[in-house]
Amino acid sequence: MATPFYVAPEQMMQDRAEYARKGIARGRSLAAVTFDDGVLFVSENPSRLLSKTSEIYDRIAFAAVGKYNEFESLRVAGIRLADVKGYQYAREDVTAKSLATAYSQSLGAIFMGDGKPYEVELLIAQVNGPTTPVELFHILYDGSIVDERDVVAIGGEADAITEHLRTNWEEGADLAGALRLAVAALTTTHDRDVTATDLEVSGLDRTRGRRQFFRLDQEEVASLLANT
């Protein structure tokens, strides 16, 4: 019987983290920018049918980068968790915090488990009343969780994009302003021109009715980008 090689735990974690980071870096990044009515998710997405963002519950939205099949199953699990909780208790008892914690626990367990780590990075956002800041939870492939303020980017080039967002973000920006800032930030890392057809734009708008998630189609994005 062959004896398994000894691998130091530090080494093993490092290898796994590197594997996940490389996988995530292969895809495009996503920027989240808060504006006067809520929060906006902007990403370069060549596909019109497979999206990176989704409605989870009335005031809660999901955004992800990385491997599609992996974040898709996390997205569905999140909708299930939220709907069961809201049905069992009350709609206002469904919170981004408990959902983000569930994702964090789940990704943490997968990272430490027998299989391969998930190559995904998630953002969970929740809007509340007009005077309460938007909640933004950033969850990494290993389950670490950070609550972000105002702006954040996820994906391979997240650091450079977040840097650009932080320097240029101003409180009280409107929807068009937030979209332009996000697009400018996403294009700082490369020289390609980004047009409305390359973008997936969605978000949460607290002025809408019960379900506050919205998605902008290409014409709406183009007209918002044109109004400079």
Binding site: S73, L74, V76, A77, G78, R80, L81, V84, K85, Q88, S98, T101, A102, Y103, Q105, S106, A109
Partner: peptide
């Protein structure tokens, strides 16, 4: 409805 997503993953 604790924090375990495991049984809810499709």
């Amino acid at each position: 409805t604790s924090f375990d997503l495991g049984p809810l993953l499709p």
